[in-house]
């Protein structure tokens, strides 16, 4: 069986920079140009956000980008059509991140099959709890070669972290603080001790930090104890201000 691109990537001896953006924002057809620019700038992995009308785990930046994407006409089907043939040019891991309701309405099996056909490596579904996934959907995801990544937070108990670790594939998404998504200028001592505490658990699954990463300093702090970090809101703000043509400058400012 072919190795999942996420696992391949995580074998590389470096800290991984992953970028999130909302598909269909700033413009409906920006998805593929953004992916190309991110890859050529040396980004290691991309989370493509499937917009939702009610993104309850997201802060204002991602909410607004989702709302704009929907106004631009983005749908699940449109996104899949845009991604058709993407593997001719993009070889880095691609993860779809979205809320569960649009996936349910598309049909979970059809959704998984389409992901596999396109070459999506995994999914992050913030409102699909790990136990429901495990009981109802895991066989389907496995059948279509898709990883499903779970979140942990500073409030997640060690017992639950160990359970999540035991059912995880790909990576564990470490939410940096008790908050919705959104850029922060720096992390405090609280975050540092949380990152260290998780590192000392010796989990089987690598961790990637997300929420609040916005610049070189927060990227450094986040990756001191983890394999990589995900930037979302700060990248979306940059796209709004500077546009797709300048993505390289953003990525170079982080590394």
């Amino acid at each position: 069986m072919k190795q999942n691109r996420i696992d391949q990537k995580f074998e590389e001896d470096k800290k991984l920079l992953s970028i999130y953006f909302s598909a269909g924002h700033p413009n409906l057809d920006d998805t593929v140009p953004i992916l190309n620019a991110l890859q050529s700038s040396g980004v290691d992995m991309v989370e493509i956000g499937l917009p939702f009308s009610d993104p309850l785990a997201d802060g204002p930046t991602i909410q607004e980008s989702s709302t704009q994407a929907l106004k631009n006409g983005m749908t699940t089907e449109t996104l899949f059509n845009q991604l058709e043939g993407i593997r001719k040019s993009i070889h880095i891991p691609l993860v779809l991140m979205g809320y569960f309701n649009p996936m349910m309405q598309y049909g979970i099996e059809k959704f998984c099959a389409r992901c596999q056909a396109i070459g999506i490596d995994g999914l992050i579904i913030p409102d699909l709890p790990v136990d429901v996934y495990h009981e109802q959907y895991k066989p389907l995801f496995d059948q279509y070669g898709l990883y499903n990544m779970f979140l942990i937070t500073p409030q997640t108990s060690e017992e639950r972290i160990r359970y999540i670790d035991s059912v995880s594939s790909g990576f564990i998404y470490m939410v940096s603080s008790a908050s919705v998504t959104g850029a922060k200028s720096d992390f405090g001592a609280e975050q540092a001790s949380y990152f260290e505490r998780i590192a000392q658990l010796g989990l089987n699954t690598p961790t990637v930090v997300g929420f609040g990463i916005s610049n070189a300093a927060t990227f450094q702090a986040a990756t001191q104890y983890s394999k990589g970090a995900i930037i979302g809101s700060a990248f979306i703000k940059f796209l709004e201000e500077k546009g797709v043509a300048n993505i390289d400058a953003f990525v170079q400012s982080i590394r």
């Binding site: 309850l56 785990a57 569960f100 913030p126 409102d127 699909l128 709890p129 790990v130 429901v132 779970f150 979140l151 942990i152 937070t153 409030q155 997640t156 108990s157 639950r160 939410v175 008790a178 908050s179 919705v180």
Partner: peptide
Amino acid sequence: GAYIPEMLYP
């Protein structure tokens, strides 16, 4: 059921 993000789990 409880289809909630992990942040709300505790």
